[in-house]
Nucleic acid binder design. Structure first.
Lengths: 335, 335
DNA sequence: TTGTAGGCGTTATCAT
DNA sequence: ATGATAACGCCTACAA
């Protein structure tokens, strides 16, 4: 592989000059620039990014930690981040935390050991305090889908409260009044916010929140089926069900169908996230869009702006969800 | 950030010694090793991976090119590669090619510019010749889900012929004899191989392949719906449908249901790939498992073995698909 | 505008 | 077993 030195020799200039045309930050006369470019061409020169990094103290890499590499949410998020970053000539180093505290800390440690210029985290198991502490370190840290007050300017998050609110409102608007709700883990901020939005919408309609119609699931299919089973076994009456994510909605749909429900006639079901398979479900799932791809792009822009000093990028920190109307929610009709 | 030099000072040894305990490849006395380790601890020393790379001419990174970062297949594949590689202390640089020739070439160029020790490609638009040429270059190239004879020892692929065969066989075993087939793009090797397997299974049962019951789709939902529409519009009679991937199977299922079919009673449908949403479909999709996660792991092992000289890793180049029996295929019953 | 030279933090080859 | 010292390929003052 040709080096900058060989190029300089062939072009008959100093290697400093070659470096200049490479980075075109300093003035170089047209003639010499051409000479250099021709020499590069001839040698098939390609800068050694490692050496560049060492000398400039910039790796041009940003680390990304996600829970899993598969899964619709992460895919969309990574896609958003990567496209934006790559267009700026930066590369992404991706690793996983598997939603476990140790896994996430190890992952962060791993990325840090890679000399990333910044890291973008989608973590769920690690505490707020840990993140606050981490962001005091020398490498800039950004957080996805999580709002931590003390470092809010480093967070790109969804307004989950609003999400829960519009989900419930959409159901109420269809005339439903007995609405069951399956939440995610109670210790997760997004779960709590979504329920709070739900409660707010109910309150506005003077419908009291019924603890019996509330179930805490696990954000997986099993949570949805277990939740619906719970409600049915208790012989509760309800005409609509809101699930705090699409996986649980899918689980609930399966369970409902296997137990004689005809969907959506016997039960309206609302999801959350609008992952890609929501459209594959039967009936197609009415849900709340979580613009995670956009959020990923925004996170990348935030990095570009703050770390790579690209000015004139406007940052939006919190994103708004919206209802995606499909087939799983229909107007209430008394039996 | 502390450097190896500062550690050496604090420990009262030369920096060469520090390097030795770091890489523990040369003999160092217990005493000095301890002194050094303590010094490292005190300074919170962390090796600069960039400098290591420059000096050792190893970036410890492997580039991965996928069509998209979202999508079930790629997610599983990346997960397999990453887990295996990270366990070995290597990191992955991931980028996308968007299934277009220019996109893929750009992506490869991008990875090459990043000084990866190796690159793993999942490309569809680029020609075999290009790949053969590419693999003559200085950085090792490995190919996923594609078999190129001339560089077969660098390919990890699925036996698609066998896949098409067992898919059809499974359908035949249920008593179906009129079987429609929706293929993927005809210029793709996997499409062709899957159809060939299909034909072989038919031939074994002395059923002649019927061109009328063959449709070329696009590997997307639209391909499935268009294909089924085509067959129905031509008023052909068939009791089973094989789709060359799950997306198309899903599209066909939707179209079928929207046009009065009751599934699976009126039509048995077989997919291919066993992507995660296959289990979310209604009825749950009977399909062919494409062990892409395992294949990803194997690709990583291949890199580990050939590039990072980890001996005693046995490589399996071609993987075998198997039938996943679920609910969308049922025995044939005459109307 | 162009060249010189020091430095980035390691690894690796010599000696000792 | 340990220590000098020269790479590794590039960037960047500082000089000219």
């Amino acid at each position: 592989m040709a080096t900058i030195y060989q190029v300089s020799e062939l072009a008959g200039v100093s290697l400093a000059t070659v470096s200049r045309v490479l980075n075109n930050n300093a003035r170089v006369s047209e003639k010499t620039r051409e000479k250099v470019e021709i020499a590069m061409e001839q040698l098939g020169y390609r800068p050694n990014s490692i050496a560049q990094s060492l000398a400039s103290n910039r790796s041009n890499s940003v680390g990304i930690l996600v829970s899993e590499l598969h899964g619709p949410i992460f895919g969309q998020m990574m896609a958003g981040i990567e496209s934006e970053l790559r267009a700026a000539g930066k590369h992404v180093i991706i690793t996983t935390g598997h939603s476990e505290e140790k896994g996430e800390k190890d992952g962060i440690e791993f990325l840090l050991s890679r000399n990333c210029d910044a890291i973008i985290l989608h973590v769920e198991a690690v505490s707020d305090e840990y993140l606050i502490e981490l962001s005091k370190g020398s490498v800039p840290v950004y957080i996805m889908s999580r709002y931590v007050e003390e470092i809010k300017d480093k967070c790109i998050s969804l307004d989950n409260n609003l999400g829960g609110y519009i989900a419930t409102k959409a159901i109420l608007n269809q005339g439903h009044t007995k609405i069951a709700y399956i939440s995610g883990h109670q210790f997760k901020a997004d779960s709590i916010n979504r329920v709070n939005g739900h409660k707010k919408a109910l309150a506005e309609k003077n419908i009291s929140f019924d603890e019996d119609l509330y179930f805490v699931g696990d954000y997986k299919e099993t949570g949805g089926s277990a939740g619906l089973k719970h409600f049915i076994d208790k012989k509760l009456s309800f005409s609509a069900l809101i699930c705090a994510n699409d996986e649980m909605a899918s689980g609930a749909m399966k369970y409902a169908r296997e137990h004689g429900f005809e969907l959506p006639n016997d039960l309206s079901i609302m999801g959350f996230d609008n992952v890609s398979f929501a459209n594959y479900l039967y009936p197609k799932l009415t849900t709340i869009e979580n613009p995670i791809n956009e959020m990923g792009k925004m996170a990348a822009k935030l990095v570009l702006k703050t770390v790579y000093s690209k000015k004139d990028l406007t940052i939006q920190s919190v994103f708004e969800p919206r209802v995606i109307f499909r087939q799983s929610v229909i107007p209430y009709s008394p039996v």
